Computed example of a mutant assay.
Amino acid sequence: MTIHKVIFDTDPGVDDAMALLFLHHAPEIELVGITTTFGNGTIAQTTFNALYLVERFGMNVPVAQGAGKPLVGEPMDPPDFVHGVNALGDISLPGELTTAADPRPAHRFIIDTVRAAPHEITLVAVGRMTNLALALREDPEIAGLVKQVIIMGGAFGIAGVQGNVTPAAEANIIGDPEAADEICAAAWPITFVGLDVTQKTHMPTDYLSELADLGGESGRFIWDVSRFYEAFHQAGGVPSIYVHDSSAVAYLLRPDLFETRTGAIRVSTTGITRGMTIQKPDTLAFPPGAWDDRPSHRACVSVDAAGLRELYRATILTGRILA
């Protein structure tokens, strides 16, 4: 069995919490750290939520608090209409915790962990890309020491999929487009798992109900935390929840469930397209431009949605990955 050593960079977040439990239960995963960023809540809230999840589910893993604002400007307001005021679907949370955060800032934790285990660490980033950009700014050499980077973010226009904050931009990218563009300039192997595939995979109510009935404490938590999230989707005309962050974990565990396209990736940082992710496919030629001399990265263009759902279900219910 291949063991993946993972740092989970996250802004919990309903779907972030569901993805964290996916990582926690997958026998192929060695979770070596959680780093937090702003996004679905303030940095104080997302760090509290990460510590709460670690404490509640007995995860022996450090949590390092990260950036509270983007590289440029101020953060967007948290989307409490999607994730609730406490970002975990407004479930009841304790007033205080016994678990404390690692004293290092998230970007320093990433640097130290990668340098301690060169070519072994996978970064699974499902929030703003600020921590990754700060780590690169402080220590650019880590790009050559990371095993891979898997990002839930972006929308590449496959089959007409657009952004979910603006017609051009997905939330994690528009939350700090400068950081996203910077990390795409680095020569580490990045795979974008964007809305093009995450919106193709749904978890309907009866699926989530089965997890609640059969999945023990984790399954019941997934049901509870997703009630607010599901109501948001249904109010918007989507009958079941999209599988965003857990799709990035699924790519790590079963990349065969996805089809990808390679090419240099840029992120727009100005105007009405701010936050748009645009790939120059390796198979196409263009006149000289802003994508030249940029490394080639992967973007997911299709997914086996049924296979992904079964992978998640099997992992939560049994802790075993089905072949």
Rank of each mutant, 00 (worst) to 15 (best):
Y251S: 03
V303K: 09
R274Q: 06
L253N: 02
G271R: 11
G271P: 03
W291E: 10
F286D: 14
L253E: 01
M276E: 09
P288V: 14
E259Y: 01
A285V: 15
R261E: 14
I272L: 12
L284N: 04
A290Q: 11
T273H: 12
S268F: 10
V303Y: 06
V267N: 06
I278R: 02
G271I: 06
E259D: 13
T270V: 11
C300R: 06
G271D: 08
P255N: 04
T260N: 02
G289F: 13
I265Y: 04
G289T: 12
P255I: 06
L252G: 00
P281W: 10
S268E: 15
P281K: 03
T273P: 00
A290V: 05
A264V: 13
G275L: 01
A264W: 15
W291C: 13
F258I: 06
P288M: 15
V301W: 09
E259W: 03
S296E: 08
A306C: 06
D282H: 03
D293M: 08
Q279D: 01
P295D: 07
S296K: 12
G275W: 05
F286E: 09
K280P: 00
I265Q: 02
P255Y: 04
H297Y: 13
Y251V: 01
I278P: 01
F286Y: 15
R261V: 03
R274K: 10
S302M: 14
T270Y: 01
R261A: 05
A264S: 15
T262P: 04
Q279S: 03
D256L: 02
